[in-house]
């Protein structure tokens, strides 16, 4: 079963300079699941993008994927 956190991981790794340091965890609740994303300090900016454009795009795709699973998903990028 492909999980939402893998979706985030694939995208984040493609954007990061140090893909090995990207760590994604999924905390599942009743309807909502929170996805926590950690990465190397210098990569955080790359993942978030200018004015949060990358992060915004990741969240949009994540929401689409979550809708399909009848869930809600929240992406938290943790410093």
């Amino acid at each position: 079963m492909k999980e939402l956190k893998d979706l985030v991981a694939v995208i984040a790794r493609a954007l990061a300079e140090h893909p090995d340091k990207v760590d994604v965890r999924e905390i599942e609740g009743q309807n909502t699941c929170v996805i926590e994303l950690r990465a190397a300090k210098e990569d955080l900016g790359k993942i978030i993008g200018r004015e949060g454009r990358n992060a915004h795009a990741i969240r949009t795709i994540l929401n689409a994927a979550a809708t399909k699973l009848r869930k809600r998903a929240v992406l938290e990028i943790i410093e």
Partner: peptide
């Protein structure tokens, strides 16, 4: 229409991310 999203939001997000990755 799931991949299109509201006003093509999801499609734009996909397009944006793919072009970012390609340019990288």
């Amino acid at each position: 229409g799931l991949l299109i999203g509201k006003k093509g939001q999801t499609l734009s997000a996909l397009q944006y991310l793919v072009s970012r990755m390609i340019s990288k």
